[in-house]
Amino acid sequence: MAERVDRITPTFWGLFTLGGFIAAFLLPVLIMMNSLAYPLRVVPWGAVQYAPALGWMRGDPVVFLLGRSAAWLAPWLPKLFLVLVIGGALFHGLHRFKYVLYDAGLHGAKKVLDPVMYGIAAVGTAAGVFLAFSFP
């Protein structure tokens, strides 16, 4: 019954778990504030437009909290936050969705599903890194 030990799955299971925590802790509040706060009139129209959004990417909201000595961190934090959320959500969700597809009958397709799913997650995360860090 000797079978080869699977080293790939535990690695992606680790990312799935990490992403699961990130999504569980951060996604609801992000969806609430980023997608529904304005329609629910929690924030005014002025707060969701281009200029404040760009300012957010620059770290404007956190700069006051950091103090002078740590102010250089401010532009990094929002970008890191976005990369964490996007990467976490992708590696979590696509791993789980892979098992949904297995269960739906694609059980024999492991060889195809693994590279496709984790490939999408990796490319999406890379796109997130590229986009986020292309802002000043």
Partner: peptide
Amino acid sequence: LAAVATSHGIWQCT
């Protein structure tokens, strides 16, 4: 752990 972590092992559990 090697014996339970095969391709039909614990990783199949959802």
